[in-house]
């Protein structure tokens, strides 16, 4: 009896709490004229959305050399790609001898595991924050190179992406610099 009444008190209190601050977050938009509600939860920095290919701004070409490492490592075998000789390399603008000709990811099958990103040696693939790609037809999100690059470029712009290897180099360089200064102060 008393615990029942206590329970009713709990719901009452949480209602008062709820009147002040419901935990619901609206999606996709937030509120209307009469009530403004919290924004949809933003994705976290490390959020793994659909994979996409990155774009090398310096050379204006994809990072991907179509080396097939990620394709072999993908647990669901949802990717495929074709390689070609890089015309920009022949012109001497790019250091990549080979480059991706076509690339397809069947996002229906992708399980967003992130293994492809981990194994790529060329910083060519990223897990974007894109997660709203539902469609009515079954094969609508088998995406090919242009869409992958577009998604990747969007992600790069949004997050100010720096290629991980470059970032590691910068960090290492910073460490080395710090070491040298430390050494300098010692001597």
């Amino acid at each position: 009896m008393f615990n029942c009444l206590k329970g009713m008190l709990v719901t009452l209190v949480s209602t008062m709490h709820g009147l002040r601050q419901p935990v619901t977050r609206q999606y996709p938009d937030s509120g209307n004229l009469l009530g403004h509600h919290p924004e949809p939860t933003p994705v976290k920095d490390r959020f793994m959305g659909f994979p996409a290919l990155t774009w090398d701004e310096d050379v204006q070409e994809p990072f991907c050399t179509s080396c097939m490492v990620c394709i072999r490592q993908c647990p669901t075998q949802c990717m495929s790609s074709v390689m070609k000789d890089n015309p920009l390399h022949e012109e001497g603008k790019s250091s990549r001898r080979k480059i991706v000709d076509s690339f397809e990811i069947n996002l229906n099958r992708c399980i967003l595991c992130g293994i492809c990103v981990e194994v790529c040696n060329f910083d060519a693939i990223v897990m974007t924050h894109e997660h709203e790609m539902s469609d009515f037809s079954r094969n609508a999100i088998r995406v090919d190179l242009p869409i992958l690059l577009e998604n990747g470029l969007k992600f790069q712009k949004e997050t100010g992406w720096i290629p991980p290897t470059q970032r590691a180099k910068v960090q290492k360089g910073g460490d080395a610099a710090a070491e040298t200064t430390a050494a300098g102060t010692e001597t």
Binding site: V43, K44, D45, R46, F47, I115
Partner: peptide, 15 residues
Amino acid sequence: QALFESVSGARMMHN
């Protein structure tokens, strides 16, 4: 789960 997302990038299938 929000914490998991910020750590691993996924809410459930973390890998």
